[in-house]
Amino acid sequence: MIKIDDMQIPAERYEDVKSAREALKKDEIIVKDNDGNIWIVDNENYPKIEGYGYERIDPNSSTE
């Protein structure tokens, strides 16, 4: 769960991008917070957290 002020966004935290890629499901995206933590959230919830420093990670990129 990602908690920002009074918002609670359903999310799952992962140790690294590779683990998140393996768990990724349809309609979900991988994001990284300002502290470098990796999360999976629903596509529809991303706009709610984007302004708080959560950066979308390309699940197909090998640079992470």
Rank of each mutant, 00 (worst) to 15 (best):
N34R: 13
P47I: 06
Y52Q: 09
Y54H: 07
D58K: 14
L24S: 04
V17R: 00
E22H: 07
R56A: 05
S62Q: 15
R13T: 06
D35G: 01
Y14W: 14
S19T: 08
D42G: 03
N45C: 07
Y14F: 15
N34H: 12
Y52I: 07
I40T: 08
D6Q: 14
N60V: 13
S19D: 09
G53Y: 10
N34G: 09
D35P: 01
P59I: 14
R13M: 09
I57K: 03
D27W: 07
A20D: 01
I2P: 05
Q8N: 13
N43F: 10
A11M: 08
S62V: 14
E50D: 11
A20G: 04
I57V: 13
K25Q: 15
S61P: 15
G51M: 06
N37F: 03
N60Q: 14
D33R: 07
N43K: 12
N34L: 12
E50N: 08
N34V: 10
Y52P: 09
I38R: 00
D6N: 15
D35V: 03
P10W: 05
D58R: 11
Y54N: 04
V31H: 00
I49W: 04
V31N: 00
M1A: 10
I9G: 05
Y54V: 03
E12M: 08
D42K: 03
V31D: 00
I29A: 02
E12P: 04
E64C: 01
D6G: 09
K3R: 15
E55L: 10
N37M: 01
N60P: 13
P10H: 06
Q8R: 11
Q8T: 13
L24V: 03
D58A: 13
K3W: 10
D42R: 02
W39N: 02
N43E: 14
D35I: 01
I29T: 08
M7K: 12
D33P: 12
V41P: 07
I4E: 04
R56K: 12
I4N: 08
E28L: 01
P59M: 14
R56M: 06
D35N: 11
S61K: 11
Y14K: 02
R13V: 04
S61I: 12
Y14D: 01
I29C: 05
K3I: 15
E50A: 09
V17F: 01
W39K: 02
I9M: 02
I49V: 10
S62I: 15
D6Y: 11
E44Q: 13
I38L: 03
G36C: 07
D5M: 09
I4G: 06
P59H: 15
D35K: 07
W39G: 02
D27H: 13
T63A: 11
R56Y: 10
I4V: 14
E15T: 03
D58T: 13
Q8A: 11
P10T: 02
D27A: 12
E12D: 13
D42E: 05
A11T: 06
N43M: 11
